[in-house]
Design a protein around this nucleic acid. Sequence first.
DNA 1: ACCCATCTCATGGTTCAACCATATAACACT
DNA 2: AGTGTTATATGGTTGAACCATGAGATGGGT
Lengths: 258, 258
Amino acid sequence: MIASGRPLVSPARASRTFDEVIRQLQDLIRRQKVKIGDRLPSERALAEQFQVSRNMVREALRMLEITGMIELRTGRYGGAFVCTGRPEIVTRSLADMMHLAAFSLADLTEARLWLSTTVVRVVSQRATETDLDRLGANVDAAVAYAAAADWPHVAQVNMQFHDMLAELTGNPVLKIIHDSVMGVIREISLALGPIRSDATVRHRVKILEHLRRRDADAAAAEMAANLASVHDFWLREIGDRPVGEITGAVSTALRRDA
Amino acid sequence: MIASGRPLVSPARASRTFDEVIRQLQDLIRRQKVKIGDRLPSERALAEQFQVSRNMVREALRMLEITGMIELRTGRYGGAFVCTGRPEIVTRSLADMMHLAAFSLADLTEARLWLSTTVVRVVSQRATETDLDRLGANVDAAVAYAAAADWPHVAQVNMQFHDMLAELTGNPVLKIIHDSVMGVIREISLALGPIRSDATVRHRVKILEHLRRRDADAAAAEMAANLASVHDFWLREIGDRPVGEITGAVSTALRRDA
DNA sequence: ACCCATCTCATGGTTCAACCATATAACACT
DNA sequence: AGTGTTATATGGTTGAACCATGAGATGGGT
């Protein structure tokens, strides 16, 4: 079947059999010939259709599973089901790259700052009063937890604040990007433990006030100030320890819990 | 909002044999027991050490390869080499997720506009004169191609302009995100064919002028105006058809040509 | 000494034919 | 109506075999 060459655009190594299987299956999903929730043919059926061994089909399916395009279920009536993309896949890739020293914590938090200021600017234009009330409930919870010095809950609610904000932009692409980056931020936050201070909460209150006044510049500035202080705190905590050590530790811890 | 407990990470299924192999190999790399450039033991040796079949080792190695942690080389003295993180892994994950998510062209170009304005603002602060000269060379090329009505080359050079700009931010995370979104944009652009107009080129010239004056606001505004006009053009071409339909078509077309 | 062709062989790539573990629809039983 | 059992197609796993590759070793020619 793949006897002749398929030059295409910079195939890198299209030489392997299962790369071709991967490509065709990806194409099926991308072109929505199979929709989200649909089941692909069984491994044995695919092997026959592609005229390759079942092992090659398995390696291809494994790749699609790892990249989050399909989910594999065992048992009769199991199989490979197309599923909606999972942001933690991208998060994982980003975290892996930090382990491999492709970029630093400073790079990450800087990008996060730009993303969050963009998000807050958009939200200041688009949020309805109802949306702002829901944000207000979140901030109130943060204030209450901070008053009780319950820092783990403060950290948790703060994460939700950012998630809600990204959701309120109404733009799914920005949401995906934001979730991916925040996933890595969350790992670091978990590894270092909650910040025992209500500084972020006080910033939150002001951000919400700016949002209610639809003052995008002020809200963005407040967000930037908040994130800068968090970044400084982390840098002091981490000192000279390599970032891989931090997130590697948390990965191991999370796996143990599972 | 998520009122329930901790989201944490998906436990996945640790039940499969090769998941354990993956975990141990990842740990080796994360803990830097094997360093970048080192070679892992051969598939056969790993199979013996882990007491599993070679197929399971292969699926584990495949996973590590896909996530960009190792590179596989054939031939004697080949093997699995730990390699530095490859940004295109994250780029592909993001692009995959965008294909799976049901988002419209409007969502994509909107996110791209925010991203590009951020990029151009950062570059206006950080670019050296040498950097700007290199950008100038790119713009000059675009002007020349436009004068010759060579629209395919104009489109190609324009893509390079955005890539260079993202590179000049000096932030690898932003570069990765930018590349991911532009990858999808590029697919759409290829599917619809080049825009036969020098409007974009004229915007380019002005953006460069603003950059040389270090006028971030003006450069961002010019960029926004440019992208808005491109977006309008595409909307007339494709209406509200889902993005997956467009990009799927171009994949197929490229394959036929090969 | 140098160059180039040839050989070597451990490595990843691929196939095949089994068997195991699992989940669920359908059925049998209470 | 509810409960337990079974049949069976699915993914998970094994082991042995063979093919294709490519960096080093070899050796002959200049």
